[in-house]
Simulated assay, not measured.
Amino acid sequence: MEEVPTPHAGPGEVRIKVAAAGVCLSDVHLIEGSLTPRRLSGDTVTLGHENAGTIDEVGEGVSGITAGQRVLLRAGEPRDGVVFTRGVDYDGGWAEYAVARADTVVPIPDSLPFEQASFIPDAVSTPWAAITTTAQTQPARAVGVWGIGGLGAHAIQLLRLVGAAPLIAVDPLPAARERALAFGADIALDPADEQFDQAVTNATRGTGLGTAFDFAGVPEVREQAIRCLGENGKLVLVGLSDQPITVTDGIRFSYLGQQILGHYGSRAEHVEQLVTLAELGRLDLSRSVSEILPLSEAPEAVRRLASKQGNPIRIILRP
């Protein structure tokens, strides 16, 4: 933690008094060094790509946005056709104040608490984009979700919302499997269970999965998920990993017309759709706030998430 000068909104920008900021596994990966910024101009960056708060300064040339307005900040900022990520490629919201380009803030209703709004731009919008855009998930088609952490838990909720069925959750932790069932999964399996393959066959009535979502980013998970795919099945890679992907039975993979699709982040429309769904009561994010800590305890929040203490979905920092 360090003291820095209070930033000011430049032309086309706004300054947000941060009310809540999510702690994501990507932040842990950045700190550990397994994820590195691609476009960071200097040597340091303020973390935090999941943020919500109140507009308190409006820069020159900004219209339609006023001081006092409640907003969340989109995690990405397009620049010349390339997306720069907040809290990765430029300063994020683990701070009292954050500056954002005016077209990257999204108004939120009074009914949506800052703590819940803050993590919509990644923990909710990333699985939503993977489900609706990358996978183009169809209702009443079997789906599997590997890794019921921060993103996977929301994926369960969202897949149920779009009608995926049956919905199979996979996680080695009993608490995560219990959470998956509470969030709407039809069945929750331990990937190490000797009867795993048979359980998937029974749940899908022998057709296999239409889509498998990997939120864990683990090579063994991806191999297991591929084995569970049915005809024209898709494996969608959401969890980040620098490890190679292995297709053990390439003939079967090709014969069944299966696909592996990469996925990263979300677009503006995904965030706006989710705000609407939350405002109308279609999406309940209250259960996702595992803990709220002061900003000064950010290192402790990172430690708890990295060690999965309490099996958190989202730990929130409050400046």
Score class of each variant (00 low, 15 high):
Gly42Ile: 00
Gly42Arg: 15
Pro299Gln: 01
Ile31Asp: 03
Ala129Arg: 10
Leu173Lys: 14
Ile148Asn: 09
Ala203Val: 07
Ala169Thr: 09
Ala19Pro: 00
Glu50Pro: 12
Leu72Gln: 02
Pro107Arg: 05
Cys24Lys: 05
Ala301Ile: 00
Phe213Trp: 06
Val18Glu: 05
Pro109Ala: 14
Ile251Asn: 13
Glu3Asn: 10
Glu3Cys: 01
Gln259Met: 01
Ala164Met: 09
Ala153Asp: 01
Leu151Glu: 04
Thr201Ala: 15
Thr248Lys: 14
Val271Trp: 03
Val218Cys: 01
Asp193Arg: 04
Thr248His: 13
Thr85Trp: 13
Ala123His: 03
Ile168Asp: 05
Gly210Lys: 00
Ile156Gln: 02
Glu220Asn: 13
Ala67Met: 04
Ile313Phe: 02
Arg179Tyr: 04
Pro109Tyr: 08
Tyr90Thr: 09
Gly233Lys: 05
Arg205Trp: 00
Ser241Glu: 03
Ala203Phe: 07
Cys228Met: 15
Glu77Met: 12
Tyr255Trp: 12
Arg177Val: 09
Thr66Gln: 12
Asp43Ala: 15
Glu13Leu: 04
Ile131Lys: 04
Ala212Gln: 02
Gly230His: 06
Ser118Gly: 08
Gly61Asp: 09
Ile313Ser: 04
Arg79Trp: 07
Pro127Glu: 06
Gly250Leu: 12
Ala185Glu: 05
His263Pro: 10
Gly33Cys: 08
Ala95Trp: 02
Ala155His: 06
Pro319Cys: 02
Val14Tyr: 08
Glu3Val: 12
Thr201Gln: 14
Trp146Thr: 00
Ala212Trp: 05
Thr276Met: 03
Gly22Asp: 09
Arg86Ser: 14
Asn51Ala: 15
Val162Lys: 09
Val58Gly: 10
Ser307Leu: 12
Ala182Ser: 14
Glu269Asp: 13
Ala20Leu: 04
Thr211His: 10
Leu280Thr: 14
Ala199His: 11
His154Lys: 06
Val162Ala: 08
Leu256Asp: 12
Leu256Lys: 11
Ala169Arg: 07
Val23Ala: 08
Gln258Arg: 15
Gly10Arg: 07
Gly64Asn: 00
Ile156Cys: 03
His270Met: 05
Leu261Trp: 02
Ala180Ile: 04
Gly217Thr: 06
Thr276Gly: 11
Val45Cys: 12
Phe84Arg: 12
Arg267Pro: 00
Lys17Glu: 13
Ala301Phe: 02
Val106Gln: 05
Val45Phe: 12
Ala19Lys: 15
Thr132Ser: 07
Ile16Lys: 03
Ile131Tyr: 06
Gly64Leu: 00
Arg86Asn: 13
Ile315Pro: 04
Leu173Tyr: 11
Ala164Trp: 07
Ser254Arg: 09
Ile245Tyr: 07
Val23Lys: 06
Asn202Phe: 00
Pro113Ser: 10
Gly64Trp: 01
Arg141Gln: 14
Thr54Ile: 15
Glu194Asp: 15
Ala130Gln: 05
Val145Tyr: 03
Gly210Phe: 04
Gln69Phe: 07
Ile187Gly: 01
Leu40Asn: 10
Leu112Lys: 02
Glu220Ile: 00
Gly217Pro: 11
Thr66Ala: 15
Leu151Lys: 02
Leu256Met: 13
Val200Ser: 07
Ala52Pro: 08
Arg205Leu: 10
Asp56Pro: 06
Gly257Arg: 01
Pro139His: 10
Ser290Cys: 01
Gly208Tyr: 09
Phe84Glu: 13
Val200Gln: 05
Thr248Ser: 14
Asp27Trp: 04
Leu173Met: 11
Thr85Arg: 08
Gly68Thr: 11
